[in-house]
Structure formats: C-alpha cells, structure tokens
C-alpha cells in the first residue's frame, strides 16, 4: 500500500510543489516588468495614433454587453476633440487587435496593430516596415537607422474616413506614390495573399467607430441624467 500508492503520490506532490513554488518567485520578479512593458507599448501606440493630441482621459464602457475601451484626447493647439479606441477582429489565425485614433469628424489620424498571430510572410506583413534599405546597405553602413518607421499597411489608414466602409484594392506592391489615389477612394491596398487579414482590420475599424459613437452617446445621456 505504502510503496505502491502513497510514496509515488508524495514524490509527485513534492515535485509539483517545488516547481510551483519556484515559479511563483520568478513570476514575482518578472510581473512588474511585464506590466511596465504593456503600459509602455500602449502609451507609445496612443502617441502614434493621435499625433499632436494630448490624452485627457481613458474610459471603459459596456456597449452591447461587451467591454469597449476608449480614450478621449484634445488637440494641443486648437482644442478640437479626438478619440482613440481599441478594436479586435478575428483574423486568419487568431485575433488581430489594433488601436485607432480619429478626430471628431471620423477621419483616421493613425492606427497601430498591437497584437496579431497571422501567418509570417503573409498576414503578418500587416506589421511589416517598408524600407528600401537592404542588408548590403546595412553591412556597408550606408544608412543609419534610428527613427521608427510606421508599417506601410498601417500608414495607409491615416486620412481615411472611419465612418464609411473602407475599401480594399489589389494593386500589387505598396509605395508612397499610391497614397493619394487610395485616399480619394477611401481604400487601402490589400496585403498580397492575405486578404482575410486586410478585411479583418478594415471591418474591425468600422465596427469600432460605431461602438465609439454608441459609447459616447450613452456617456452623454448619463451626464444629462446626472445633472
């Protein structure tokens, strides 16, 4: 009895206990840094999607039974309002989370994809930085790389209208020159071979815009009632 049941159970229990005990210590050491990194990432993203704006508040609202996180902001000169909000859509292989900044007329000021697990080389190119710099330039130290480039797929969203349907065009590789004509059509260039990812992002932005409208409306009502 002792040798066949109790002893092995005790040994297993001991090993499991030792493992969880040491893990909890490591978790204690790393946890503050994990939180700090997440906060930094969010602050950086907010600055990126609302250029020239000052964040005035962060709010969490319940819209249609789901949690919706958004920030209110103010233009540093002029005082027009701006908003940033978090959206998520289901991509090709998991959720794609992005943060979007818009002004009071619904024009997108910037968007940044925070989390994605799309296929490398296809969907994952939504966070790819388009640069003309090649490995040879780097090796020969022709160019210095010290500024942060915005991924090309995300850059195309600036200036589009988030209230309307954002169209998706397929015109091959992206370059600066296409920006103007795309903006006129309220469209973005799809990532080659990963239309699903592009659709996910554009649709989640449109949904997010509607949720924001509802959240703001219900917030205003509450204020009225409070008065």
């Amino acid at each position: 009895m002792f040798n066949s049941i109790i002893k092995p159970s005790l040994v297993l229990l001991l090993v499991a206990f030792a493992a969880s005990f040491s893990l909890s210590h490591i978790q204690k050491i790393t946890y503050p840094n994990i939180i700090k990194m997440e906060k930094e990432k969010q602050d950086l993203a907010l600055k990126l999607v609302l250029p020239g704006y000052r964040i005035t508040g962060s709010k969490k609202a319940k819209v249609e039974g789901k949690e919706f996180e958004y920030w209110t902001a103010e233009k540093e000169e002029g005082g027009t309002a701006g908003y940033a909000f978090m959206v998520a859509g289901n991509g090709y292989s998991g959720p794609v989370e992005s943060i979007v900044g818009i002004d009071d007329r619904g024009t997108i000021l910037g968007m940044s994809i925070l989390k994605q697990s799309e296929t490398p080389g296809l969907g994952a190119r939504c966070v790819e930085v388009s640069s003309k710099e090649t490995l040879f330039d780097k090796l020969l130290e022709k160019t210095a790389r010290n500024e942060i480039y915005m991924p090309w797929f995300q850059k195309q969203f600036s200036g589009l209208n988030s209230g309307e349907k954002i169209r998706i065009l397929k015109k091959g590789e992206w370059n600066e020159g296409l920006m103007e004509s795309l903006r006129k059509e309220n469209a973005v260039l799809a990532i080659t071979g990963a239309t699903v990812t592009s659709v996910t992002v554009t649709e989640s932005i449109k949904n997010g815009h509607e949720l924001l409208k509802k959240a703001l409306a219900s917030g205003a009502e509450k204020k009225e009632a409070g008065k």
């Binding site: 296929t119 490398p120 080389g121 296809l122 640069s131 003309k132 710099e133 090649t134 490995l135 040879f136 780097k138 590789e173 080659t192 071979g193």
Partner: peptide
C-alpha cells in the same frame, strides 16, 4: 535577419508557409 536582400523582388510565399 529582417533586412531586404533584393529590393523589388516578389518572394515565393509558399516557402515561408
């Protein structure tokens, strides 16, 4: 290492899949 080798060339995405 994340740097483009030949600018403008379309790679074969089946290789990365």
């Amino acid at each position: 290492f994340g740097y483009t080798l030949i600018p403008g060339m379309e790679p074969s995405s089946a290789m990365i899949l």
